Amino acid sequence: MICPASQISKFLLTLLIIILLFYFYMDFNLYLRLQNYPLDNDNSSAITYEKVTWLSCRINPLCEVTVKGVLLDHTNYYVFGPLVQIIDNILRISDIKWITPNSISFFHIFVAILSAKCVTSHSLTYRRIGVLLFEIRTWLDDLDGHVARVRKHIKGERSEIGTAGYYIDGICDAVGCTALIIGVFVFLRNNPPRRGYILLSTTSDSKEPNILHSFKVTVKKVAKTVCCFSLQLIISSTAWNRYIALYQDLLENYDLPGVDKVKQCDVFKNSFFFFVAWLWRVINIHNLLHLLLLSIFCDKLWEFLRNTQYVGYGVLISVVCITEINIIDIKNFIFYSLNETEIV
């Protein structure tokens, strides 16, 4: 044994706190980036921003800020995205013609299936290996989008909605997530959680109390709980992709007159828009999967699923309502001069 389990737990907790602090620090810098260097389509703001940042724009996610980037979860945007760029700079994957974005998408399906197989194991070590494999799958998901954008000379995170690659990537992601959920269900079915403990008695000659497990959670209950979380993933994914499409149409439409382009920049500077985007960074499907994987890694899977079973719906519905209001306000603000209607 390398070191006591308690020391490992303290190390992992410290690492988690450092990561969260890093995410908040980057969010603060992202907010300043939007306030001082608005988006454009001629790359001038990225060049200007590179002069005041210590990190090269080749790996700095804050240089090329897009709608999708602002709505993307912290791990993908601040960790996996730059890591993909670094690996591509070293291996030149995007220059290898026989490696296509679609082939990468198909490959990470097999990584997800292997991950799900590990998640079903009785051994916590194997389940943790499964978590790491699924995070590799997520990195590969970032890689296929990166390769596609490089070959099309597209800067920053963007969704090319309606293209064949968009749908293939979505299908492969859905298959991979489904494999993970099946793995979670199989593990809980084979290792049903217990509802609690019963203290039977404590004898005078023994300091240890006699404890009996009450009863196991039924397979039906496990299936219901897993299905509830799966439906939350579907709702989150559907809504998140819908709002990326709507915000891209509103804020990255470069065919608008000059006065409306100024309004687009004003929206990006708006604190309420940033707040709404930040909410989606927390509850989009990628981050929900990260939280699920974290619960598996910490051996708290059932507790996580049980605690989010109904609360998750309330959070999702609330954020959807807030976002719909924000989109209506943005439409009215940007196209005010065209509609010639006064906003109250």
Rank of each mutant, 00 (worst) to 15 (best):
269 K>P: 01
307 N>P: 04
113 I>L: 11
45 S>G: 04
188 L>E: 06
87 I>E: 00
147 V>R: 00
267 V>G: 01
278 W>A: 01
7 Q>D: 10
271 S>L: 09
227 C>D: 07
222 V>R: 09
115 S>C: 11
111 V>Y: 03
57 C>I: 13
42 D>I: 01
12 L>G: 02
48 T>N: 04
282 V>I: 15
124 L>M: 09
264 Q>D: 04
40 D>M: 00
187 F>A: 07
276 V>K: 03
144 D>N: 13
220 K>L: 14
279 L>R: 12
319 V>S: 08
231 L>R: 07
275 F>L: 11
72 L>G: 01
217 V>W: 10
108 H>M: 14
12 L>T: 10
41 N>Y: 03
195 R>H: 12
339 N>D: 07
256 L>I: 02
19 I>C: 05
22 F>N: 02
178 T>F: 15
339 N>R: 15
188 L>K: 02
202 T>I: 14
139 W>G: 01
150 V>W: 02
305 L>W: 06
78 Y>T: 00
301 L>D: 06
228 C>N: 12
343 I>L: 06
270 N>G: 02
222 V>C: 10
23 Y>F: 15
52 V>M: 05
217 V>A: 11
308 T>W: 12
311 V>D: 06
44 S>M: 05
135 E>D: 08
175 V>G: 09
323 T>N: 04
194 R>I: 10
94 S>E: 05
194 R>Y: 14
312 G>L: 12
244 I>H: 07
301 L>G: 07
60 N>S: 03
97 K>Q: 08
43 N>Y: 13
31 Y>W: 09
318 S>K: 10
249 D>K: 15
